[in-house]
Design a protein around this nucleic acid. Sequence first.
DNA 1: TAAAATTTTGAGACGGCTTATCAATTTCAA
DNA 2: TTGAAATTGATAAGCCGTCTCAAAATTTTA
Lengths: 145, 145
Amino acid sequence: MATGKYAKEMDTLKEHLAKHQLKFTRQRELILTAFLKQEHVTAEVMYHQLAKADPHLGLATIYRTLNLFCDAGLAQARHFGSQTQYDNVSHKGHHDHLICTGCGKIVEFENCEIEKLQEEVATRNGFTITTHRLELYGLCNRCRH
Amino acid sequence: MATGKYAKEMDTLKEHLAKHQLKFTRQRELILTAFLKQEHVTAEVMYHQLAKADPHLGLATIYRTLNLFCDAGLAQARHFGSQTQYDNVSHKGHHDHLICTGCGKIVEFENCEIEKLQEEVATRNGFTITTHRLELYGLCNRCRH
DNA sequence: TAAAATTTTGAGACGGCTTATCAATTTCAA
DNA sequence: TTGAAATTGATAAGCCGTCTCAAAATTTTA
């Protein structure tokens, strides 16, 4: 039983490792701790973030480890632009976005009713949702005139 | 003013071209016509589809043209796995997607209630929506077991 | 605890997808 | 029709993520 700020997630990882005959390593611990501090990151970003803590940590290890977190249910990969974003699943309070195609302004919002309907759609199709992405594109007040 | 099945979209393209000092070419016309016949495609798929119509049509041209369609608001790029899907925006009854993170299966759906709520959110924030993107990520029936 | 067995790591090679380059061609306004 | 400007096709180059493999670390066995 791990202790500390991220004890729960650390235990989830250890359970997953044990179940699959994988090993608990210094790198996996380091990467998980850094990963949990943020909402979402790319492997490249973590590579630079962790360069100070361990200058020899390889990029391949970070990719492997983030994918491992996905398998363990701690992270979720999302393809954005040409890159892969790894989302911190334990971070609650998902935001959706209203994006103005005129000036680029982004407004965040949250709507429980929409989320409820999403669940219904998913269930009807035999899916279990882990995350989603909703972006509304249009013109804001100012840009419409 | 273009005539034919895809007159409206062809005009949208021409308008965009005129506004940006770009030229209307045989290739752009060919690719748009083929593109509009489908819900979503990858550049690679179109490359093979169009090989019969024009064996010399280059893959780069298809990429360039599909990106042009995105700029013109006729298409929307969506990254999945390692590929880019180009969605046909003008397809009636905009489709949203349920995406299985296990096997990559994509189920399309449409939900008027969700769309209505989206409108409400937009109005409340002073936005006029022109398009949107909703993707639900999770596990399908098969992958959950 | 020591040694053996197994997994992981790091560095770079590799492969797939997309974009950049550039000479030749095409478009279009005058 | 002509000439400036944009587009095309072929391929090189770039980027991202995965694979490879010898060396190192972890766990198991004795």
